[in-house]
Design a binder for these strands. Sequence first.
DNA 1: ACCATTCAGGCCACTTCCTGACCGCAATGC
DNA 2: GCATTGCGGTCAGGAAGTGGCCTGAATGGT
Lengths: 314, 314
Amino acid sequence: MNTSARMLRLLSLLQTHRYWPGGELSERLEVSPRTLRRDIDRLRDLGYHVDAVRGVAGGYQLRAGGSLPPLLLEDDEAVAIAVGLRTSAAGAVSGLEETSVQALTKVIALMPPRLRRRMDALRSQSDNLVWGGGPAIDADVLTTLAQACRDDEPLTFGYTARGSERTERRVEPHRLVSIGRRWYLVAYDRDRQDWRSFRVDRIADAATTGQRFRPRELPAEDALTFVQAGIRSMPQRYAVRVRLATAVAAVQDVVGQWGEVTPDGDRALLEMNVDDLAWPVMVLARLDADVEVESPPELRDLLVRTGERFSRAG
Amino acid sequence: MNTSARMLRLLSLLQTHRYWPGGELSERLEVSPRTLRRDIDRLRDLGYHVDAVRGVAGGYQLRAGGSLPPLLLEDDEAVAIAVGLRTSAAGAVSGLEETSVQALTKVIALMPPRLRRRMDALRSQSDNLVWGGGPAIDADVLTTLAQACRDDEPLTFGYTARGSERTERRVEPHRLVSIGRRWYLVAYDRDRQDWRSFRVDRIADAATTGQRFRPRELPAEDALTFVQAGIRSMPQRYAVRVRLATAVAAVQDVVGQWGEVTPDGDRALLEMNVDDLAWPVMVLARLDADVEVESPPELRDLLVRTGERFSRAG
DNA sequence: ACCATTCAGGCCACTTCCTGACCGCAATGC
DNA sequence: GCATTGCGGTCAGGAAGTGGCCTGAATGGT
């Protein structure tokens, strides 16, 4: 076996962790113990921290180092990672959407077809994990767009703008941005010869042509501001203020990051900003406590309506 | 630079995808174009599919191959992966919990401290992402246990069994199993000199001692059956059957994988199995449709109680 | 149709490095 | 103290890597 290949295998073995006795390693790699020691040295030279324990029952162990070593994954692990990233990309953790898509694109591009199939088998499960409303996001579309942006590949897709027919587009993708719960694609529309931002959930049948284009200069400071300038109808934001007759901690547990909970006498004051009132209703349903809605009135109405609906179930 | 190191860098460059012209690659790696071609060849020999496009504006591109190449990640990407896996491990996608923890353990073990800190900064956000009840799972504890299981390292931790004081345990961990929404650790208790299963959410301050032990034979077919045999009080499972005056698709969108929706005349029949009734209540709150609860009666009661609670908000 | 560009890969001489064998040494646990 | 295991120096032979040069072949633009 090649030296490079052997180093990779050694890294892979060390990543399954388990204290490896040097003898076993050298046997598996089919080299002499001396060469193994040299290989370990090489790894250390590359910046990886390899701990060694001497004496009887000694061995080697890879420790976290200064840089991230190449991840050598089993098939299942790769699938798990892809699925996990898909939920992150859908906005599970705010602030991580872009990076998640980036990582997801990388993983997917490297996955052999059989793994991609396995991942797709789990698709329906994870794509529905969009809490509190917002359009479901198609991870396939998202990664296709991300990849095209990264690689400067022209795209074609069908776009169904609000209240109009589907139109076919040929664009030069520039960047994906995530605002609130929505994804937007900033791209240069080749037919309209101008920059546009597209809502990703309205894009269908995205496909790259395999060509490449020379990136143009975006006539804006950055993609984010371009999108924000272009959004006419920002989704209605509601500032929710609710008082709950229960402990702060209990509320905190349920709302997690998506709201702020402060003590208010023997009650808890919950504040959150949402664009879909269904989400606070779900939170309130989870909490077994009396509710006093301070704002918005729409929430109070919805709550009462839901309450009556529930009461009728009896 | 070393050949092995160069190959790794080359792989890394190719993983950022973007059609790389051979010239640029050879320049970055500081080798002659001829050697670059040989490096590409080497990669292909290792099983990686490297596409090449000839002619003006040609270049190289890494394609998905038969096996998963080592993932070379940016810092941010690693953090995103770890965070995503944490939600998967918490049971976001059923059937993937074990693999997610396995992958998470691997990633965390390799992360340099600064990245781990960055990940922890996002902890409070993602750890609360436990939908529909069940105890919050501490990813740190989980990965510590997983790592100890994998590496045959003795563990110490504090265990607070239901209704009793906290006790200190010294165990030889065997395996983690996930049942429903709960995690269990199967381990040999050194003090009690017998096999036990521990609920992970009742474990605190888990730490490895750095030693190692020789694995014992588990006196059961496998860890899963051992845990199942030991669980006296399986969480009460409710078989939920609800009729909803709305379209099947609308219901399907909300419940996703966690329920089965079938048409029932002009209504929809929703069936799901849960161990916490708060979850179906949240689902029903999200759906703007009249509800008829067929079973269980506890759900009807809870629904009515919630309904009255909501109505009082008016 | 022609041509510049770019990847493919054979050949060759030269250099580097890798390897296994042998050695003495240091740490560890019994 | 003793066996075990990692550490690393040295050495000689061999394997592998390197750059330069070449011819071919595919590609896209003129």
